[in-house]
Amino acid sequence: MNTKVVHGGNVAWVYDHENKLSTGKFTFEKNNLTLDYQRLIQINFYDNRLREEFILCLEFHENNFKSIKKRFDKFLNVVEREVCKDFKYCALFKMPNGAEPRTIYFISDIQPGMIPAEEDDLQYWEGWIDIKLTSVSDLTSIIEETMKIAIHVEGLLKPSSLVKKRNLSEPYIKHGSEAKDFLEQIKIINQDLIKSESIRDFNGGMKRIYEYSIN
């Protein structure tokens, strides 16, 4: 049995699989933007997928991506000036077709309540702003929907542009003996198992996936 580990923050995904990976990736991992962003969000902002965190929701009605990107940059400048210059964030631009309101889902290591409210002398969004409790699963669904409708967004060069991020820690990836040594080092049998499932992959064959919350 072969082992691959993807880990970062307080989470680790362990993959026990039949076949060696010629490219280091399973078939389902290749060109999978939703999975890439879901991992980034989870390791940077969530202890485990069962938790919910407060995120900022910025509503807008423009159809043109370049236009709303300028508004978002103005919002970031205000946060840097009024709250903190050095912070990490991930912003998901949900821009559906039709009359449905569009929304930027902004998750950061800055608590939403620390961002000042708009006043006469501090205008940075000029639209509806809300704070919502949101889970990793909720955000993953938003990313999936965002990627599907990306081809219809005016002024957008590529789907990945609908996700903006800064200062995020990337996951570490280990294979084989290095992965097994890491699991022994963190005493994986004593960690909290959040989820497990078995699936078949074209590259890795039959595999068992475990998701752990690391103390």
Rank of each mutant, 00 (worst) to 15 (best):
L139D: 04
I43H: 10
A99L: 15
I110L: 03
N32E: 07
E170L: 13
I131V: 10
S160N: 04
E59P: 03
T134Q: 05
T23C: 04
I143S: 00
F54T: 02
D138A: 08
K25F: 12
W13Y: 13
C84K: 15
V11T: 10
F202N: 15
W128K: 07
I43N: 07
E145K: 13
I189K: 12
F87T: 03
I188F: 06
Q123E: 07
V153S: 09
Y210P: 03
N31G: 01
L168K: 10
E59H: 01
H61R: 13
M1I: 11
E197L: 12
I186C: 05
E211R: 09
K69V: 13
Q42S: 09
P96C: 05
E145G: 05
H7F: 15
I43V: 10
Y212I: 00
K85F: 02
Y37E: 02
I214D: 04
S169R: 13
V136G: 15
G204E: 06
C84S: 13
G205C: 02
E197T: 07
G205P: 01
V6E: 10
F75Y: 03
R102I: 05
I173K: 11
K20P: 09
S160T: 04
E145S: 14
Q191E: 08
E119K: 14
N32H: 06
V6I: 15
R102C: 05
K70C: 11
G113P: 01
G155M: 11
N19W: 13
W13I: 15
I142S: 02
I107E: 02
D138C: 10
Q123C: 09
I194Y: 00
S213T: 14
S135W: 11
K158G: 04
K66S: 13
R51S: 11
S67V: 14
E178A: 11
I43A: 13
P116Q: 11
Y210L: 15
K30D: 08
I199V: 10
L157K: 13
F26G: 05
V136I: 15
P171Q: 08
L50T: 08
R39K: 12
V14S: 00
A91S: 13
S141C: 09
S108Q: 01
R200H: 04
F72P: 14
K30R: 05
M147L: 01
E119Q: 06
N44K: 12
K195P: 00
E18T: 01
Y172M: 14
L139K: 06
V11A: 12
A91P: 06
D130K: 04
S135Y: 05
F45C: 09
A117V: 14
D109L: 00
K88D: 03
V5P: 06
N31Q: 00
I68A: 07
I188Q: 11
L156I: 05
N77Q: 08
E178D: 11
P101W: 12
D138F: 03
T27R: 05
T140R: 04
N44R: 07
F60Y: 08
R51Q: 14
S137G: 06
P101S: 08
T103G: 00
K174T: 01
L183C: 15
T23Y: 04
E62L: 14
D201K: 04
